[in-house]
Design a protein around this nucleic acid. Structure first.
Lengths: 120, 120
DNA sequence: TCAATAATTCAATCTCAATTGAGATATTGA
DNA sequence: TCAATATCTCAATTGAGATTGAATTATTGA
């Protein structure tokens, strides 16, 4: 991830509708959600507006889409999110690991650490 | 961290000068850097512009400042950064821990895990 | 093929944030 | 107090991104 990509990603996340979409997709998992379902879930966005923001997220690399029948399914690009965080926090610990580690701990993400290769 | 705070933080990070400042401050550690030093490090920003962006970062809660002689020292607010990431990734793992854990791993942050209470 | 559904594209307008440069404020040492 | 350093504040200009509504494309079932 370079600076330009990070800037595009942060710009994408700095808009209410798009931030809600990303959080929704992050929670929705890899299977994603149809554009219409996203619109209903976040509420108060015309189909035109929604399409604009979804395209914006896709261009920023935070979401991707696939057609499925009449619907277009959007899903989160998880590596893009982790790369973004890594870019922001890079070299955070230079000489101060005790300061930086809480930031990592905050990401415990309600995952049990013993979760490994469930059925991959 | 609520949505409004997250939006403010992402907006703050979506600008080249500010993103550079935050990354610089993250690397600089808790002691921070003087405004002038920041300006020299990132390059190509008038003092007026720099002041504008530093104030913006402070208002977004990503940096804080203190006066020290003629200089004003800025430093990163680490908890704000980790809260921001936690907000974005919240409930990421709902049913998909195997998808989400790589995001956390990316934050290894070149910290050795055995680093604990070095001299706190 | 026709109507219905799902979503996108386009052009016009509008709003907000970035930049600039001049001037103001605060601190220090002589 | 005066000059120098360090940084901030303010007003004006500029440009990028958000919103709206109408029209368009793609897919499906009758």
């Amino acid at each position: 991830m370079d600076e330009a990509q990070a800037l595009a990603a942060f710009a994408a996340l700095s808009q209410e509708t798009r931030l809600r979409i990303v959080r929704l997709l992050v929670q929705a998992g890899p299977e994603g959600l149809a554009a219409g379902a996203i619109g209903e879930a976040i509420g108060g966005a015309s189909s035109s507006r929604l399409s604009f923001h979804l395209a914006h997220l896709e261009q920023a690399g935070l979401a991707r889409s696939r057609r499925e029948g009449r619907s277009i399914i959007y899903s989160a690009v998880y590596p893009a999110l982790s790369d973004l965080v890594a870019f922001l926090m890079k070299d955070c610990c230079n000489g101060h690991p005790d300061v930086c580690t809480p930031a990592v701990a905050a990401l415990s993400c309600s995952c049990e650490p013993e979760a490994e290769e469930t059925h991959a």
